[in-house]
């Protein structure tokens, strides 16, 4: 058994919230650079150059990459041999979010659903716990912007709709979203289990390094096909026309109920933030 004081979790979460909002991950940066090469539209190229320049400025701590510093989505993989002491793990995570968003000059974006009153400290985060073998704790913080999250969806297709139905759903969703989610986007697709499991898979798909294909060759082909269809839509960077609408499509699949074909599409903007640490 390994003992970990929860204060360590608070510190780690705070640091990850700040780093995620100022340092665009290298894989995303590289994908954007390649997009700049590929993009045919001059307007689109200008947008991509600006995005790359912005990433540099944020890295120098001029300001966060985006003013929407996201709702903090936290993934925790906890080794089953770990024992937490020093207080509530959940409270420690909340405290980490409070601290990170305050000390990092990050925008607090959580509010009451109807009065719209700002909570003031960006809590509550969305936390996904997973218990895994071992004595380590892996934490991923993925702040998620509202603009792209608003363009996401879960739909319950009929089994007869099949793979083609899923592909249609994804492509149509991206088409309707147009410039709203700040393209070039990364598209997470989740098909599996129940309603909420699909949504979770689609979210998790966004954590994969950009463009890293699904290890299943057939699924990797589907990812490629959806990506090609999306990039034929002509939406382009910021929706102002162009050949690069999406940087990648990540598809995650699991078995479903015999009556169902749940399909989730989680769209991420080019500010695809995620930072991780292993304690």
């Amino acid at each position: 058994m390994r003992v970990i004081d929860v204060s360590q979790i608070t510190e780690a979460i705070a640091k990850l919230c700040i780093e995620a909002n100022y340092e665009l991950p290298d894989d995303v940066y590289q994908a954007l650079k390649e997009a700049l090469e590929k993009e045919k539209s001059p307007v689109g190229k200008a947008v991509l150059s600006m995005i790359l320049e912005n990433a540099e400025l944020a890295r120098q701590r001029v300001a966060p990459i985006c003013q929407d510093c996201g709702l903090a989505v936290v993934f925790l993989e906890i080794g089953q041999e770990v024992h937490f002491t020093g207080g509530s793990l959940k409270e420690a995570i909340y405290e980490g979010v409070r601290k990170g968003y305050k000390e990092g000059y990050l925008r607090k974006s959580t509010c009451h659903p109807f009065t719209r009153a700002n909570v003031g400290d960006n809590t509550p985060p969305v936390i996904h716990y997973d218990i895994v073998p071992g004595d380590k704790v892996r934490i991923v913080v993925a702040p998620k912007g509202g603009g792209s999250e608003n363009m996401s969806m879960v739909t319950m297709l009929k089994p007869a709709d099949g793979l083609e139905g899923v592909i249609e759903t994804v492509v149509n969703r991206v088409k309707e979203a147009g410039g709203n989610p700040c393209p070039p986007i990364i598209v997470g697709v989740g098909v599996g289990g129940t309603f909420e499991r699909s949504a979770f898979l689609a979210k998790k798909a966004l954590l994969r390094p950009v463009g890293k294909p699904n290890p299943d060759v057939e699924l990797a082909k589907v990812e490629q096909e959806i990506l090609e269809r999306i990039n034929k839509l002509g939406i382009g960077p910021m929706g102002w026309g162009g050949t690069v609408t999406a940087l990648a499509v990540h598809f995650e699949m699991e078995p479903v109920h015999i009556a169902s074909l749940p399909c989730a599409v989680n769209i991420n903007c080019h500010v695809a933030r995620h930072k991780e640490i292993i304690i």
């Binding site: 600006m50 912005n54 966060p64 985006c66 080019h270």
Partner: peptide, 13 residues
């Protein structure tokens, strides 16, 4: 007018 989304640091300058 459109401004480039996700360029908050650059635009702030």
């Amino acid at each position: 007018f459109g401004a480039v989304g996700g360029c908050g640091a650059l635009l702030s300058q």
